[in-house]
Amino acid sequence: MDTVLGIDLPTWWFLLIGALISGYGILDGFDLGAGAVHLFFRKEESRRIALNAIGPVWDGNEVWLVIGAGSLFAAFPFVYGTILSVFYLPFMLFLVAIIFRAISIEFRSKEEMKWWRKMWDVSFCLSSITISLLLGLILGNLIQGIPLNANHEFVGRLRDFFNPYALLIAVTVLSLFMMHGAMYLIMKTEDRIFTRLTIIANNTSKFFILCFMATSLATLIYVPHMTAIFKDHPALFVLPVAAVLIVLNIRRSIEKRQYQRGFVSSAVTTALLLILFAMGLYPNLVLSNIDPRGHISIYQAASSEGSLRTMLLIAFIGMPLVATYTIFMFWTFRGKVKLEEHSY
């Protein structure tokens, strides 16, 4: 297997896809969180301000998901096909929710009727919650493994996805996004909605910490393979310790009203949790919970070496461009939100 800088090509793509998913989790995470807390705002002006806080960036943030999915298809087509076929219904619901979230943002201000705006407010909130829960549900099942036989064929049932551990991960992801989104909105607002958001951020951070503790305990007890790497490489234990400290720093930042620092901490928490997930998974991409022969590793699923090398070169050029575009967007629309004639 060819290497680049001493790392084999499938591992490079494993790292690259992980970076893209982390970028999506951080960026679209606060969009989804802002939508999940949307109905906590009672006044029309507050809801419009909240929408316009994410209005210029939400669709650009979803680019990271598109690139991540495309990279998975290009580098590991067998895994792409397996995951889509196994999670067919969750992914269909996910796409429907994405569509409704987009049209809720765009359609809400097209008419002045209260029932019209309330309908799209509810749609925006429910679709954001649904997307967050589905992402967590899929993640939870990938962590503990899915029922694949030795031929990598799915032999489970739909209800197998709704197991207690996966549901716990789903709620944890939702709580993380709600906290992340609340702190982003705090940085973009002022006056009455700012005061309201400080209460929401305080409550959602407590909710997340409870979910984080429950998830950590459940993982240690029921999903021991995710912690096996720390027994083999004790030095890596610094990462879960760092995750705990950063989660505690979120609470400290909120209590000290240092919301920008708290937002950065929640972003780092998102990235660290996904890194821990990847470490527990590597070198596999999909785990079977009924037959170890059903595991799918990065080496089994990888495209040809020529394809991986060529696409890696393109990725090394394209990813900085996407990152630059993202930074430019946030810099352009920095500062507090002010409602104007053409605002949502």
Rank of each mutant, 00 (worst) to 15 (best):
residue 15 L to C: 15
residue 15 L to F: 15
residue 15 L to R: 13
residue 16 L to I: 14
residue 16 L to P: 06
residue 17 I to N: 04
residue 17 I to D: 06
residue 20 L to A: 13
residue 20 L to N: 07
residue 22 S to A: 11
residue 22 S to R: 05
residue 22 S to W: 13
residue 22 S to N: 11
residue 22 S to H: 08
residue 23 G to V: 06
residue 23 G to M: 13
residue 25 G to T: 02
residue 26 I to G: 00
residue 27 L to M: 04
residue 30 F to Q: 00
residue 31 D to T: 05
residue 33 G to K: 04
residue 33 G to E: 08
residue 33 G to T: 14
residue 36 A to Q: 08
residue 37 V to P: 00
residue 38 H to F: 10
residue 39 L to R: 12
residue 39 L to Y: 09
residue 40 F to P: 00
residue 41 F to G: 01
residue 41 F to E: 06
residue 42 R to N: 15
residue 44 E to H: 06
residue 45 E to P: 12
residue 45 E to L: 13
residue 46 S to F: 14
residue 46 S to H: 15
residue 47 R to Y: 08
residue 47 R to M: 11
residue 47 R to P: 09
residue 47 R to H: 08
residue 47 R to N: 09
residue 48 R to C: 01
residue 49 I to D: 02
residue 49 I to P: 04
residue 50 A to V: 12
residue 50 A to Y: 05
residue 52 N to S: 10
residue 52 N to Y: 06
residue 52 N to L: 07
residue 54 I to V: 10
residue 55 G to Y: 04
residue 57 V to H: 02
residue 58 W to T: 00
residue 58 W to F: 02
residue 61 N to S: 01
residue 62 E to D: 14
residue 63 V to Y: 04
residue 63 V to H: 10
residue 66 V to W: 09
residue 66 V to K: 11
residue 67 I to W: 01
residue 68 G to F: 07
residue 70 G to P: 01
residue 71 S to D: 05
residue 73 F to R: 09
residue 74 A to C: 07
residue 74 A to I: 12
residue 75 A to N: 12
residue 76 F to L: 13
residue 77 P to Q: 12
residue 79 V to P: 15
residue 80 Y to A: 14
residue 80 Y to K: 13
residue 81 G to Q: 13
